[in-house]
Amino acid sequence: MTKHDQVLVKADNVKVHFPIHKGIFRKQVGSVKAVDGLTFEIRKGETLGLVGESGCGKSTAGRAMLRLYELTEGQLDFEGVDIASLDPHALRDMRPRMQMIFQDPQACLNPRMTVGSIIAEPLDEHTNMSTAEKREKVKTLLDAVGMNRDYVNRYPHEFSGGQRQRIGIARALALDPDFIVCDEPIAALDVSIQAQVVNLLQDIQERMGLTYLFISHDLSMVRHIADRVAVMYLGKIVELAEKRDLYKTPKHPYTQALLSAVPVPDPDIEAKREHIVLKGDVPSPANPPKGCNFCTRCPIAIDKCRTEEPELRELKTGQFVACHLAE
């Protein structure tokens, strides 16, 4: 893909650990390694899908990208500026360029504010527009997300989930950002509304040249919207590839298992298809296994997997896999 060759966001060994305190003296006895060494790039104008099961650190990774969590370690380049070490003031000036769309449309809008003031909040914070200009801008934003301009005076509880998600999107767009983290924006919506919202996101991306980090556990939706896909397991990326390669020739056993769980809309094929069923549960991120994180559930694990941690290596152009056995 030639149009995406400039790197916009570059994560280098990003770690987010949450300390666990115990006992009377609240001594730190360990840490939850929610995100444990992510390295990837997001190119300008592309959509990077981030998939993984519940609790694997997707949302934490997304929030860390905007430094809503302090990084324990690692660097986060946003067009050459290391956000991870910026002081709060400089970080605040960067905020308009990166925004977030949240998972729960119910919780992400303040119930006591009108839609108009919710969408205008970023404008209040970062611009010196007059009230009339703000109102005009809010109305164009409502137009952009396909909502009635007259809704500025209503409250979030008067809307359906899909409409609220549109309001959230309008808020994220208010400052003309370059990069938007979509944290499972469709997970809480009806299937019929999911398509609308995803199409809206794609539409806006085309119009405004946005870059997305699209976090989801819905593999088919990611296939629809993403250019490249990263698969996470227990705080680490196990596979990162162009969408076509990942869905056609998954190399990591975890990716293979994930993909085999997606149902095929043809009963004949579905009946004959072989599922890879993973046994056991995801280990606790407070106490990950030695060696490869996936070795406790991997169907093809060998002794080496239990002692040595696999590096993310490039198998073929653009397809990175963290597995000793992948070829």
Binding site: L68, R95, Q99, M100, F102, A107, C108, L109, E125, H126
Partner: peptide, 14 residues
């Protein structure tokens, strides 16, 4: 802990 507070932080509200 509600997400709209996180949203405010992501906007850069003090």
């Amino acid at each position: 802990e509600r997400e709209f507070v996180l949203a405010a932080r992501s906007i850069g509200t003090g």
